[in-house]
Amino acid sequence: MDYLLHIFIVSLIYAIFAMSLNLELGFTGLYNFGHVAFFGIGAYTSALLSLAGHPVTLGMVCSMIVSGGMGALLAIPALRLTGDYFGIATLSFGEITRLFFLNERWLTKGPMGLPGIPRPTWIGEGVAGLPWFLIFCMLLTLVVFILTRHLTRSPFGRALKVVREDEYVAQALGKNALSFKIRAVTVGSILAGLAGSLWAHYISYISPADFTLTETILVLLCVVLGGRGTNWGPILGAFVIIFFQEIIRFLPIPADFDRFVAPIQGMVYGAVLIILMLKRPEGLLQEYKE
């Protein structure tokens, strides 16, 4: 039962994370291959603040501000060019952020990570608090869902799609494509920061190993499998992927084969991404009606 709660909580956190990426990837057509960086920045910001004795709520707000700020800071240079360059810049940024977490021991304790990150005090300790944490996550997911849906259905969201479909047309129609992209990345990073912060407070221990390309692939898979550019897609994708990931732990795997599990999982994720792109690039839910 507790385990089911755990799966739901992780799925919801990933749902928020995936919605944030979907804003960039699905609606604006930006290939952000380092989105985990903003998740990580959010997690570390929130963890450091609450470990320093500040209230968890403050940590969460600050994590959104810091992630959003970093997102804008990266987006401004990285988006000046179209094409695959944004993919390169974000992929490198993801790696560099991990290096930062690993090397700045004075701040992040390096590879040791940060243990003992508190939950919001009103939620309660340990397992007893899980149902409350789940409700908290559900509420936040709902809020993020409503906000992003409102946003993507607005003229702003439509303009993002124009930029995605054809940047030159966007410019010819008087839209500052760069500005729309920067705003999309900023909002995406803010929400990724929120997801990261939730993650830190839920898991209570974070280390640089939690913010690698694997997490980027995972969230990419959530968005792509669920359906890019749809509002429900990332949530569906997150639940499918996280359930798949966690269910493996229940399989009777002999101890000798334990070390094979993670690589096989990774290969499956990679293969699913490829097969999806080849066979059903729009994902489970489709953005447009035929």
């Binding site: 003229p155 439509r158 303009a159 799609k161 479909e165 047309v169 129609l173 008087g174 839209k175 447009y288």
Partner: peptide, 29 residues
């Protein structure tokens, strides 16, 4: 020809309207 292929014909036109308040993030909310 550069239409926006995955937007409807109507959306293609609506997107072109100049100076939309709703393209500002703050106004959307």
């Amino acid at each position: 020809t550069r239409v926006l292929p995955f937007l409807s014909a109507l959306e293609n036109l609506m997107a072109a309207s100049p100076g939309q308040t709703g393209e500002r993030l703050s106004s959307v909310f």
